[in-house]
């Protein structure tokens, strides 16, 4: 019912991702969201870092840039400032955005630059072979956590909001319609938007944690989902290891490049 062909580079398919990987669901949802907002294909730019998520840019028929591990948002900042008419979408992962690129995520949010960052959160470093990521839950096994993981997980929503993002939402690949809607809302927001999509990696994460099929992993994600409205009445203990979904932040706030032009450019030109 939806014509994806208009937006994909057909000669690159079938894509690189494993059978049942949620990344394809996020990619498709992003396409529907971009279609819904109706941007001209020549004015859209997708940028990614390194990792499974970051292969997304290669499949879309927009200008695209596949950059360095963690740095997509920094490249995106330069592009947006050089050509503000571009609608800039960044595809990144939990390791890419939360570990090596954490600083860029914080500062892009702080500036509230008009970029939409879609974080594919599959709780693991997939491409390098299943090492623990900043969102691997405690007690789970990874190739670098053979005794069970002990670190605390990053909460991308709290991080994004704390840093100043004007839009922050979390959803999961088990609900593709919601992924589409939240990304669409993020694209609509004139400012920095973070959409965290909890995804599945049954190959590198599930397999080592008794969930080797995508269906098992989808069930595991689904049973932990708590919609925000419901979460409000629940205690911290009850919410442990749950996936709270919803729009956490959606406010209007001055956008960086517009502010730059309005204040700095205008004043400098006056001199």
């Amino acid at each position: 019912m939806f014509n994806y062909d208009k937006y994909i580079r057909k000669d690159k398919f079938p894509h690189i991702w494993c059978s049942g990987c949620g990344n394809g669901i996020i990619l498709k949802s992003s396409i529907r969201a971009i279609d819904k907002i109706g941007w001209d294909k020549n004015d859209v730019m997708t940028i990614s870092g390194i990792g499974c998520s970051s292969r997304a840019t290669g499949y879309l028929d927009f200008d695209s840039l596949h950059t360095l591990h963690g740095r997509a948002l920094a490249f995106a900042t330069g592009i947006k400032m050089a050509k503000p008419k571009m609608n800039v979408v960044v595809f990144t992962g939990d390791g890419d955005a939360g570990a090596i690129g954490g600083n860029h995520l914080i500062h892009a949010a702080r500036r509230n630059i008009d970029i939409t960052a879609v974080i594919f959160n599959n709780n693991i470093y997939g491409m390098t072979g299943g090492q623990y990521s900043p969102t691997t839950p405690q007690e789970f096994v990874a190739t670098t956590a053979p005794y069970g993981h002990i670190e605390n997980s990053f909460n991308f929503m709290e991080l994004a909001i704390g840093a100043g993002a004007s839009f922050a939402a979390r959803t999961t690949v088990t609900n593709p319609k919601q992924v589409e809607n939240f990304i669409h809302k993020g694209l609509e927001n004139k400012g920095f938007s973070v959409i965290e999509v909890v995804s599945n990696c049954h190959v590198q994460f599930g397999r080592r944690n008794e969930m080797k099929s995508p269906i098992q992993m989808f069930d595991w994600i689904k049973e932990r989902i708590i919609p925000m409205s419901k979460a409000e009445d629940m205690s911290e203990d009850e919410l442990e290891n749950k996936v709270i979904t919803g729009v956490f932040k959606n406010i209007e706030k001055p956008e960086y490049v517009e502010e730059y032009d309005k204040n700095i450019m205008a004043k400098a030109e006056g001199e």
Partner: peptide
């Protein structure tokens, strides 16, 4: 930018944008 890595990344992006 927030560091030198971001600085060079931003100029590569800007240059590719023209």
């Amino acid at each position: 930018m927030e560091d030198e890595i971001a600085s060079i990344a931003s100029i590569i992006g800007a240059s590719l944008a023209g």
